[in-house]
């Protein structure tokens, strides 16, 4: 069974075995507005938790997407370069950014579960 957890920077992570799929949350895409471009990392890149993984751009803003876990990029969602709108339409599904081979699974536990994230977002208003 896979589980989805969330970071304070509004990334979501779905862990299956030692592979983590990463994207931005519905709240994040809403804040950003129409996504026009996604700059994805190269496969094979090693990233550290909290460091820049990708960049997502709307018309008037550019935001970094941080790696919620450390690991190596094993796959990226290259369809986003053609259809960045997918991030708005299906942030938690088809709008995923990258898959990481996770180096330290224990980092997953320190992320928020859905209820905690929901509460966290409510607290931002």
């Amino acid at each position: 069974m896979s589980e989805v957890r969330y970071s304070q920077e509004h990334e979501w992570v779905k862990l299956e075995g030692d592979t983590a799929t990463i994207g931005i949350t519905h709240y994040a895409q809403e804040q950003l507005g129409d996504v026009v471009f996604v700059d994805l990392p190269e496969v094979g890149k090693k990233v550290e938790k909290g460091k820049e993984l990708a960049t997502v751009e709307s018309v008037k803003a550019a935001s970094e997407v941080y790696a919620p876990l450390s690991g190596e990029v094993v796959e990226v969602n290259s369809t986003l370069s053609e259809t960045p709108a997918t991030v708005n339409e299906d942030a938690l599904g088809a709008g995923w950014f990258a898959k990481l081979k996770v180096s330290d699974k224990s980092q997953f536990g320190s992320l928020m579960d859905e209820a905690a994230y929901k509460k966290y977002v409510e607290g931002l208003h």
Partner: peptide, 8 residues
């Protein structure tokens, strides 16, 4: 972040 353009 600036407010996105409302488009309608």
């Amino acid at each position: 972040m600036s407010t996105p353009t409302q488009f309608q």
